[in-house]
Design a binder for these strands. Structure first.
Lengths: 232, 232
DNA sequence: CCGGAAGTTGACCAAAGCGTCAACTTTCTC
DNA sequence: GAGAAAGTTGACGCTTTGGTCAACTTCCGG
């Protein structure tokens, strides 16, 4: 209903099976100077457009305009709108791993949590567009999150929940439900990027500054740490 | 670029000025049995569609199908897609006030906060679709949030922040930044509805149950209260 | 039970959307 | 520097979409 719309069941091009488009695209797999540069240009432009308009609202024409390349050229590198989007989603998913790396069972819980909160807020501040793009995807039910993506996310989340549990077992923090603690961490650190308008409205300012992020980090850290029985 | 597309600068219908559409619509203002029923039918169907697809992704044809009314009939009651959407957004905005009513300076802070968290989670659970629709609107920068809407939200938020400050001044809770406390409350209670896919993934279940919501309420309440120096 | 208001609806329109294509130019490779 | 591979692009096809319209039926107060 989205893609392949007027192509129907039977491929019209020669060659066997599907192939073509996304994979097998003419410029889809090349790694030449030009192709690398152009793919980057396109993805950068696409982030902006997808962030502002969402998947459905974004048009290839707009991405073309933003990247200053003709529409047909976009199709030369990415066979479909979906292919561009999926690439971007996969990217952001991987980029979150860095912040998560803070949470290891060996570290001091207070230190680790504080580090995580700070790293996560830092990331969302610097990559607000991607953050929002992902938020949009999630709000729409994760239509383009593959089974693998979900499994990966789940594995990582659960690994971190086991870290919390290890801390609790060792009596190093209060016993709380790890899932919901994780949600609190995740949601409060995402908020400023994902719901920028609302945050700005609450802060009564036209832009969220680095100072705002600092204060957010401090407040969230203090409440979470104390809330989990971790002395400051 | 969205609406009024092929109408251009000059209205084509007779009558002076704009008028027509949204306001002045034929069936736009009537309060007959039939019109009330149909408007409700349409809005109910529209919530579903807008929630799933977002503003841009939703099509009137789809809303028509979902409400089992012909497309032209939708236009009889709502002049534009935007009019339907705006109505829905305005509605949800008002419905949040109820939960907020918990937060008054006179009440015991611990009790008030616990009540708020519970009420908010309850609301998002029962009106998950609207919640998500609003989240989607916010993620897209609040294109359809009028100046009045924003002002109202800001006024309410700030009023509640003053409640927090009153509690702090009276030494009834720790001194923390009220904006960011508010964000923590808001974001963690919205998460389960807005990011349903992610929450389900973390919970490793196919549906978020009432029990899940209970555990969420308990965990969030405990961490926030203790985190703000409020004895359980 | 009549006349006007309210409601219903199929057919239609123009714009915008995604994706295609074939001809052309630039860039490599040997 | 010639031939092949890679890249470029304007014009085009078909579908969907928001919105309109005019003819028709139903409803309701007097």
């Amino acid at each position: 209903m989205d893609t392949n719309r007027h192509i129907g069941e039977i491929p019209r091009w020669g060659m066997g099976m599907m192939a073509r488009r996304t994979e097998g695209r003419p410029g889809g797999n090349t790694t030449t100077r030009i192709s690398v540069r152009n793919r980057k240009t396109i993805l950068d432009a696409a982030i902006k457009v997808f962030t502002e308009k969402g998947y459905d609202g974004a048009s290839i024409a707009e991405i073309a305009a933003a990247s200053k390349l003709p529409k047909a050229n976009i199709y030369y590198y990415f066979g479909t709108k979906e292919a561009i989007y999926r690439t971007l989603i996969a990217d952001v998913l991987h980029e979150w791993d860095d912040a998560l790396a803070h949470l290891t069972a060996e570290r001091d819980p207070a230190e680790a949590l504080a580090g995580y909160i700070r790293a996560k807020l830092d990331f969302t501040r610097r990559h607000a567009a991607q953050s929002r793009m992902f938020a949009n995807e999630a709000v729409h039910g994760g239509r383009f999150l593959s089974r693998t993506d979900r499994a990966r996310m789940q594995a990582i989340t659960h690994a971190k929940m086991r870290v919390f549990e290890a801390w609790m077992d060792a009596g190093r923090m209060d016993r709380v439900d790890p899932v919901h603690l994780f949600v609190m961490l995740w949601s409060s650190t995402q908020y400023y990027a994902d719901f920028d308008v609302l945050a700005r409205n609450a802060l009564a300012s036209s832009r969220i500054t680095v100072d705002d992020y600092d204060r957010a980090a401090e407040t969230i850290t203090r409440i979470i740490l104390k809330g989990c029985g971790l002395a400051a």
